[in-house]
Nucleic acid binder design. Structure first.
Lengths: 343, 343
DNA sequence: ATTGGCACTCACCAAGCATGAGTGCCAGCA
DNA sequence: TGCTGGCACTCATGCTTGGTGAGTGCCAAT
């Protein structure tokens, strides 16, 4: 039974193709790997692999390249995640340790991931819904407007400006605000964001009638932030790496860039990731639900403080990608940044 | 004296080249513009223009293309800013009016600018140093850490986490924090950020000795935010437009993308703009001090609330760019977003 | 099941050639 | 003096052609 050797051939094809970016033929394969068989045998194996849909020939007299299914098999069964080198690990930790706040952590993470993998890196801000409320602050702005600030356990700060239609400048209102502030905080602090929205709903019954209108407005604004979570943000770096590997994209990198600019798309992609735990997930080529990204592969992982994951990060690159190395980098960065956030 | 006609020829060359992206020859020029003279005359004019360094021929038997100097002359003396169409103006105002907070304003602005000009748009966040302090909030996080939140008049929120080394959980500390909070706010609110830093420096003498250490730490952190202003951010959109106009870049768009990812560079560029007032500024090709951007042109403008400008925005595109239209779009967007912020 | 051999295919490259847009220059004309 | 028409020349571009070689599929032999 030659099943094993056929897989070895597939592995060799993937490795060579990733390295050279050229279709690999039976002969070239023999020179670079000691398979212990002749070229003709390899050719037979290749024919079978092609029949199984794992490799394909771009044209008649060319070598073979892996298909999406071929990469999938390679990732699932033929590769081992290559550990990072010592210096690399060190670089990761020292770079991330230098961050001063959450923004800075995210910023450094995304740049790090991009330079480490030499691909496009994407990092989602720690998601609101999975963290909980640390503090809510109400700040009057000018005569009638109110700034509502929400601070989460992940150190994230959300803000909204609210037109109250009331005069907030007089001392009376100030006292009212102070009382509202403590009420709102009492009803939400420590709860997850989803629960906090519920807590807000129950508040109006317990409150000075004069303040009810204002409270309702505040609650509405906060609920929007809490529930709709529309403010989820992603940051991106390394887009210039796309053009370097530009030949890997059949048509052009244009559609890819467009898809990447649609942050909503990225959020969807990273969102599904966090549900799968902290394992590194790989989505290859057409497995990807978004048209613009069907020529790319995504390597992603969840990350976050402690045991509850709060967001996703990952890299986007051509399907012809060094999966073992990339997966190692993504995993390592996710681990380190989680550690930082756990503090 | 044929000076006028020569300039008319230059104008025609720029217009045609921008439209067709192909070197324009004497004959093609005559077909598209009624100059009232013969091809030979145009050729003579072209020869002069070439001698003056305003146009150049990519190779012997090709038409001419404008040089950076040619574009410069065109922008300065030969073009009029083309006003936007009614629907365009309407689209701008309705889109920007829908923004819910500062982040959203900036986000919408940059996307709008990108789609309007079909180029890469860049928007700088309203700069800290030019706005003033609205409110400072101190929030204990866990046992010993303190979150310092700075809210500016432009609605921007800056945050820093501080390791105090003290126990902040007990009621005693809470009272101290409350007092510190009002002291700090008293010393800073209403001042410009630069002045606020000064106000903080004078505070320690007036404060409960027990709180001095903490205050010093807070002041140090705030001063860093206030003075170093290192948190200046830019957002970008429309990078996919770069590849569309990819043929315009001699080598590749790679270096351009790299330069654009260096936010520091963009900040420098936009920074010089705000000093020039709200007029639209154009920087063409090699006029640009940054290597990666020497094949691009920048069209920028300051924007901000009221009479004091607080930040810059603009677009980056190939030197072969429709300057009149782009300048009109940049100016219009800057005006509208300023109006929104002035509220 | 594996191998060596062989005929065949076809992308790729270089050379040759035609095409035509565009130029510079010059002599004639207003 | 400035404009024009004419003419010879240049040279990038595109097409065709033929040669080359990597790579394949198949088959008979081991």
């Amino acid at each position: 039974m030659s099943e094993d050797r056929r897989l070895a051939v597939l592995r060799a094809i993937v490795q060579d193709y990733v390295e050279t970016s050229e279709p690999v033929g039976s002969k070239a394969l023999l020179e670079r790997h000691s398979l212990g068989v002749s070229a003709a045998t390899v050719r037979n194996d290749m024919a079978v692999l092609e029949e199984e849909g794992l490799i394909a020939a771009p044209h008649t007299s060319a070598g073979r390249i892996p298909t999406d299914a071929g990469y999938r098999l390679f990732v699932d069964r033929l590769s081992t995640v290559k550990p990072l080198s010592g210096p690399e690990r060190k670089a990761i930790s020292t770079l991330l340790d230098g961050a001063v706040d959450l923004d800075d952590v995210v910023d450094r993470t995304v740049r790090l991931l991009a330079s480490l993998t030499r691909q496009v890196a994407v990092v989602q801000y720690p998601s609101l819904t999975r963290s909980s409320v640390r503090h809510i602050e109400l700040v009057p702005l000018g005569a009638s407007r109110l700034l509502v600030v929400l601070i989460t356990t992940t150190g994230r700060v959300e803000q909204r400006i609210l037109e109250t239609g009331m005069d907030l400048a007089d001392p009376e209102s100030e006292r009212m605000l102070a009382s509202l502030r403590s009420d709102v905080n009492g009803a939400t602090v420590g709860k997850t964001l989803a629960d906090a929205a519920g807590g807000l709903g129950e508040l109006p019954t317990q409150v000075d009638p004069a303040a009810r209108g204002l409270l309702a407005a505040i609650a509405a604004e906060l609920t929007e932030v809490l529930v709709e979570q529309r403010e989820e943000r992603v940051v991106m770096a390394g887009t210039s790496n796309l053009v370097r590997s530009g030949e890997d994209f059949p048509s052009s990198i244009g559609p890819v860039l467009e898809a990447l600019e649609e942050h909503v798309v990225l959020l969807k992609l990273l969102g599904t990731v966090t549900e799968q735990g902290s394992a590194v997930a790989v989505r290859i080529g057409a497995e990807n639900p978004y048209a613009g990204l069907q020529t790319t592969s995504l390597v992603t992982s969840g990350y976050g403080a402690g045991s509850d994951l709060v967001a996703g990060l990952g890299v986007v690159g051509p399907t012809r990608m060094d999966y073992p190395t990339t997966m190692a980098a993504v995993r390592a960065v996710a681990t380190y940044v989680s550690r930082i956030l756990a503090e």
